[in-house]
């Protein structure tokens, strides 16, 4: 028998009901698949008194056409996204990224919303209560010191979701339901570069759905992650690329990263390569630009300098691959 704190579980059937439960409950947390949250509860990192189980909210599941784009419910499981013919056809990187999350069983019940709202991760944080207490906790939770960068007052825990960068390159928007009503914002607006508090959403806000626009549908894209093992592992670094080629020139290039900073983000400066052919020099420049914008710290057992090297190498490889494939 595993030890878990006492909590009450609600199972609403609409998003509005879920938001209402959240507002009315003590220490509430939204629960979808639970692949991240339940682990953290078992480790005492999260101590909710109320769990709001979203798996019964019908409007939050499923993939549907939205004017040439797509609407994907926040509680849609990752396998459904990975195997969806329409997602694969229109937004290849999104399907690929969903298919790279953790292992197959996790993807059978882990959800899109869960992957986007994944807590940031660090060797000194994803440990048991006994472990963290023995180590005087850490800046991110209950402690004073960051064990990764003891002299600073910043938390460098890394955002480690796979799907976010793929959605970023396709300019996804998210529909959030909260106590103040429903709003739709670009995906990047829900994140900030702070491992301690990387979500810029309001308390009680719930990710109802993700919208992928028609404007980026069908543009070639791809996602790849670095990890030590072929499955289960979180990314050490992840890269999504969207690239359109027009003759010899690159007509559209967007790159986004995950797992190398506390938040998923676009790589700046890619516009410089648009309107030109892509040669080795340009590819090297892309690689180097990516490396300068990745700032991994010792949050995994694998050396941060490696994650920085590899994120650049993978970006170069993906850009080259998409460019060559359209030649």
């Amino acid at each position: 028998m595993e030890y878990l704190p006492n909590f009450k579980t609600h199972r609403p059937s609409t998003a509005a009901e879920a938001v209402k439960f959240f507002a009315e409950s003590d220490e509430p947390r939204y629960l979808a698949g639970g692949t991240d949250l339940v682990v953290n509860v078992r480790r005492g990192i999260e101590t909710p008194q109320t769990m709001i189980d979203l798996t019964g909210v019908e409007e939050m599941t499923g993939i549907s056409d939205a004017g040439g784009g797509l609407r994907i419910g926040g509680a849609t499981v990752l396998r459904e996204i990975a195997e969806s013919p329409i997602v694969r056809e229109r937004y290849a990187a999104v399907a690929e990224a969903a298919g790279e999350v953790a292992g197959p069983t996790h993807r059978d019940y882990g959800t899109l919303g869960g992957n986007l709202f994944l807590d940031t991760r660090c060797l000194y944080y994803n440990q048991s209560e006994w472990w963290r207490a023995s180590n005087d906790y850490c800046l991110k939770k209950a402690g004073e010191v960051c064990h990764v960068a003891p002299s600073g007052k910043r938390c460098f825990a890394a955002f480690s979701g796979d799907v976010a960068p793929a959605l970023l390159v396709h300019e996804a928007e998210v529909e959030l339901a909260g106590p103040g009503g429903t709003r739709r914002v670009p995906l990047q607006d829900i994140y900030r570069n702070d491992g301690l508090d990387h979500l810029a959403t309001q308390p009680g806000e719930l990710l109802v759905a993700v919208y992928l626009p028609a404007s980026t549908a069908g543009i070639p894209s791809t996602y790849v992650k670095s990890r030590v093992r072929g499955s289960i592992d979180f990314p050490l670094a992840g890269v999504a690329v969207r690239l359109q080629r027009d003759g010899a020139d690159v007509s559209d290039l967007v790159v986004a990263l995950t797992a190398v900073n506390p938040y998923p983000h676009f790589v700046k400066g890619m516009d410089a390569h648009v309107g030109k052919p892509l040669d080795d020099e340009a590819l090297d420049a892309i690689r180097d630009t990516v490396r300068t914008q990745a700032k991994p710290m010792q949050t995994t057992t694998v050396a941060p300098w490696y994650r920085r090297r590899v994120v650049g190498a993978l970006a170069r490889r993906l850009v080259s691959k998409l460019y060559e494939a359209q030649g």
């Binding site: 060797l123 000194y124 440990q127 048991s128 472990w131 023995s134 180590n135 064990h147 057992t301």
Partner: peptide, 8 residues
Amino acid sequence: HDGLGITG
């Protein structure tokens, strides 16, 4: 980490 197993 100072004798505390990180990879437990």
